[in-house]
Each structure stands twice: as structure tokens, then as C-alpha cells.
Design a protein around this nucleic acid. Structure first.
Length: 370
DNA sequence: AATACGTGGAG
DNA sequence: TCTCCAAGTAT
């Protein structure tokens, strides 16, 4: 396969577009971001959908738009508020970038999402895929929007044996889209490709017999649809032993801290926690770290039966949780003391939500006391 | 180019 | 259990 697009010329472009778009017109799912073509709402949906399933996104999208219905509303919101709205969705820099970009649109583009490829690409969090998606769906511009679906679909239709995990592959698929895209309805063309990938041309066991463009598909013709696309494996996640402390002062307030503004789970809140050695004396290590880092002397008990696992794509945390009591102070280093009710206003990583759920439930049952 | 960056679901 | 994700972007 010297020339990856060697089959491009054999596609009947008009028939392909017609089959694809007709199918999408009849079979598309009724999704909340398809009610109109408001560029802002299209934008929000595209950011949320990055590496995230449609079913997961739907409730987040509805809540988010309810809370921040316009660019102005999102631009003027507090970061705490937007992170809380994103809590549990993952990849939290997405929402901070989105707000920064929306502010840029408000301040530099008169509140109108730019419809120029060069301009929209300068916005934070808007890469080649998202730029193409907004331009085509909201503005009807014939720009490619190449995501994982599109690469999978075209890998099969054009029998392209490129490794789609390699960044360099995307531009080949963009070239294919540019050659085939409907100038008349680029929005439906792009969305149909993604919808086809999601519903029919799935990663494993594609439903070729239901496929509206089966007649155009080289992989189907060759019987190699299950061997495509080529996708190299990712590195497996490394394990880290962690210990966390749910600390109460005598007012019954809980001590939490805000994570750094960059890196993993940036700007989210959590219970103080540290990496610990894999061998014993976890409680002693945690106790010592609490003194060193926050200047907090604590009485720690390990009465939480289970350890908590937090699986990221690249790291696995095994978290031992301790409940503890601290003396009342004016300050606890970078830790702040909040009532259990106030915890609800802060955005936590999922693992720490689970920790609090378990600790508070055991406290109520009297199985644990700080 | 390769890696960091989350999460819950499917097979 | 375990592997692979799912409408990517930033660095």
C-alpha cells in the first residue's frame, strides 16, 4: 500500500454523498445539540464529545447549557462554577480552555464565534477536528472534521492501511474528506460520517449489511473490514500507591485543598493525599507528610475497610483512606476547612467523591468517628 | 513524535 | 478481571 489514497479515484462521489446523506437524514439520532445550529452550542457539544461517549455527554450538555446558555453567560461565570458543571466528565482542561476561548470570542470577536478557519483555530482547545466540526455544522463550510470515527470509516471504505494512532495519519484522511465532501451539505456529510462510525461502522463487528455505503466500501469488497483500521496499542498505565486523609476539626468541618493549576485534575479539590511506599507503615507516612506539607498534626485511624482505585488512562492510583481528627487552628497550610454541606460546591475527582460518600455514610452509621 | 490528560461502558 | 476504548488537544 504505497499510496494510501490509491482507491480514492474509484469512489463515485455523487452517489457516495447521496447514499451517506440520505441515510443520515433518515436515521440520525435525536440529540440535544442537534436542535439548532447555534455555533456556541455546537462548540460546547464538540468539546464535551472529545474522547467521551454520547450517552455520557447528553446530561452534562443539558445541564451546562441550562446553566450557561450563551457565550456571555459562560464568559462571566466563576471557574469554580464551570469546573463543578464539568465534574465527572474528565479532561478538565477542556472546560477551562473553553471558558478562556469564549472570553476571547467575547472580547476580540464581538461575541460571534469566528467562521474563518485560521481564526477559529487560534481558540484554546479548538484543534483541527473541532474547528472543522464547528465550521461545517454551524456555518455550513466544507471543512473536514476528522475524528476517530471518520478515520475508521475511511480506513475501511478506501482500504487505508495506515496506523490511525499516528498523528501524521490525520492529514491523509482530511485529504480524503476534502475530495469527497458535499459542498451542498457539508454539515450532514461530516455528521453522517461520524454517525455511521458510531452506529454501523463500529470498531468491532461492523454491521456491514445495514451500511448505506456498503457498495462503495473497498474493505467490504475485499472482506477485510474486521482487520481495519490499523491502530497501535497504547502504553499500559503505571500504578501508584496513595494514601488520603479525611480530616475533621472539632467543629465537624472537613479539610480539603485545591490541586495545582496545571497537570492532572488541575484546579479540582480533594482530600489531602500523598504517594506512599508500597510496603507497610502507610499511616505513619501519611501522618508525617501531613506535618511536613501542611503543618498539621493529626490523629489518624484506618477504619475504612476498602481501598479506593482511581483508574486514569495513564496512571492507576490505589488509595488507602484514613479518617482523622485535627486540633483547631487559624490555618492549616493550604488546606481549608469546610462544612460537609459546603463540600457540594466544590468540584472533586471521581475517586474523592467516592471516598467522601463512603466516609460520610460510615460516619452516619457510627462505624467511624474522627 | 510521543505522551499527558478522565471516565464509565462494552465485550 | 482486563483490555480497549469515545465526536482530541496541548506540549
Amino acid at each position: 500500500m504505497d499510496e494510501p489514497l490509491k482507491n480514492l479515484h474509484s469512489i463515485d462521489r455523487e452517489a457516495f454523498r447521496e447514499d451517506l446523506i440520505s441515510w443520515f437524514t433518515n436515521e440520525q439520532r435525536d440529540l440535544p445539540w442537534r436542535k439548532d445550529q447555534d455555533p456556541y452550542k455546537v462548540w460546547v457539544s464538540e468539546i464535551m464529545l472529545q474522547q467521551t461517549r454520547v450517552d455520557t455527554v447528553i446530561p452534562y450538555f443539558n445541564r451546562f447549557i441550562g446553566k450557561f446558555p450563551t457565550i456571555d453567560a459562560l464568559a462571566s461565570a466563576d471557574e469554580e462554577e464551570i469546573l463543578k458543571a464539568w465534574e465527572g466528565l474528565g479532561y478538565y482542561s477542556r472546560v477551562r480552555n473553553l471558558q478562556a476561548a469564549v472570553r476571547e470570542v467575547r472580547d476580540s470577536y464581538g461575541g460571534i464565534v469566528p467562521d474563518d478557519p485560521k481564526e477559529i483555530a487560534t481558540l484554546k482547545g479548538v484543534g483541527p477536528y473541532t474547528a472543522g466540526a464547528i465550521l461545517s455544522i454551524a456555518y455550513g463550510k466544507p471543512e473536514p472534521a476528522v475524528d476517530g470515527n471518520v478515520m475508521r470509516v475511511f480506513s475501511r471504505i478506501l482500504s487505508i492501511w495506515l496506523d490511525i494512532s499516528k498523528p501524521s495519519s490525520r492529514k491523509v484522511f482530511e485529504e480524503a474528506v476534502r475530495a469527497l465532501i458535499s459542498e451542498e451539505n457539508p454539515s450532514y456529510f461530516n455528521q453522517a460520517l461520524m454517525e455511521l462510525g458510531a452506529l454501523i461502522c463500529t470498531p468491532t463487528s461492523p454491521s456491514c449489511l445495514l451500511c448505506p455505503v456498503r457498495e462503495h466500501c473497498h474493505a467490504f469488497e475485499e472482506g477485510v473490514q474486521s482487520e481495519l483500521p490499523i491502530k497501535s496499542k497504547k502504553k499500559s498505565a503505571r500504578k501508584l500507591n496513595m494514601a488520603a486523609a479525611v480530616l475533621f476539626n472539632t467543629d465537624g468541618k472537613v479539610l480539603i485543598h485545591k490541586r495545582p493549576g496545571t497537570g492532572l485534575l488541575a484546579n479540582l479539590w480533594e482530600f489531602p493525599n500523598f504517594e506512599v511506599g508500597s510496603t507497610g507503615h502507610i499511616r505513619e507516612q501519611l501522618h508525617e507528610s501531613l506535618i511536613e506539607v501542611y503543618g498539621v498534626e493529626s490523629a489518624l485511624k484506618r477504619e475504612i475497610a476498602s481501598t479506593f482505585q482511581h483508574i486514569f488512562s495513564h496512571i492507576i492510583w490505589d488509595i488507602d483512606v484514613f479518617v482523622g481528627a485535627v486540633e483547631d487552628h487559624d490555618s492549616y497550610g493550604d488546606l481549608i476547612a469546610v462544612t460537609p454541606e459546603e463540600l457540594e460546591k466544590y468540584a472533586f475527582p471521581v475517586s474523592h467523591q467516592k471516598i467522601w460518600k463512603e466516609v460520610s455514610s460510615q460516619l452516619e452509621k457510627g462505624q467511624v468517628r474522627p
